[in-house]
Amino acid sequence: MDAITTDNLTKRFGNLTAVDGLTLSVAPGELFGLVGSDGAGKTTTMRMLTGIMDPTEGSARVMGRHTVREAEPLKEEIGYMSQRFGLYPDLTVLENLHFYADIYGLPRRGRDEKIGLLLSFSNLTPFGKRLAGNLSGGMKQKLGLACALIHTPKVLFLDEPTNGVDPVSRRDFWRILYQLLREGVTVFVATAYLDEADRCNRVGLIHRGKLLACDTPDNLRGLMDGTILEVRTPDPRRAALLLRERLEGESVGIFGDRLHVVTRDAEETGRAIKAIMEGAGVTVQSIRPVEPSLEDVLVSVLSGEATR
């Protein structure tokens, strides 16, 4: 049995279709990433899967439980961390944990051990008496995770858990997630960071409510037609405009101070790029083929979507 299955899951708000006919399944023990830009429908999908929102059409089951009809028993099985910090800022770290332990009806026996474990797990032990509102962004997220894990859920839903979290805390956070996966927990994580999506077993690319592709990160990279040329130049903006105009049929994207050009014939295009840019007086520092990142895939899939 799959941990999560959705069938034509759809949510409309008036004229806006936030999630459009989403059909996917997640195996038990899998780390699944839902990847998309802001407003793609990630949070709405999460809310429907956790029983916070009812779908307009279609249905979803989590651990075999229908998210609308069996919402109450479902809640015992899942943990959820919302995008915004969802704990009480005027309660201390320990009070928050004890509160959630009470809400989930955790037996008294073993409760302190469980809380102690979660605190050390998330490196929060020294901050037990601090008000949750006074924690740093990364610590808040770890406390949120600890509270979502207090009842040992079978499926964990995380909505952009590392948004606005410093790199060190992000690494901590992922270390905890890998630990959970070893314990057999299914993790469903929504993220806008593609480097994080790369850590997932499988990734669903969502754009404007539609699932564009759903596969392992490696297979998604295989979706790319051709290879990627990385072009370094001091003036990427001007170069991009120039190349988009002159290079026919190739997609050009800006990645920081570099350009990524997708092409079928790397050598031929490489020469063409050099010629165009030098002809226009734009310095070329280097041109070399690189491994496509998920970001390239997303850009490529999206541009394919746009021309279709």
Binding site: K75, G86, I103
Partner: peptide, 12 residues
Amino acid sequence: IGTMEQMIVTPI
């Protein structure tokens, strides 16, 4: 402050 959303997913 967003705690409501978190409360809804609990069995309360």
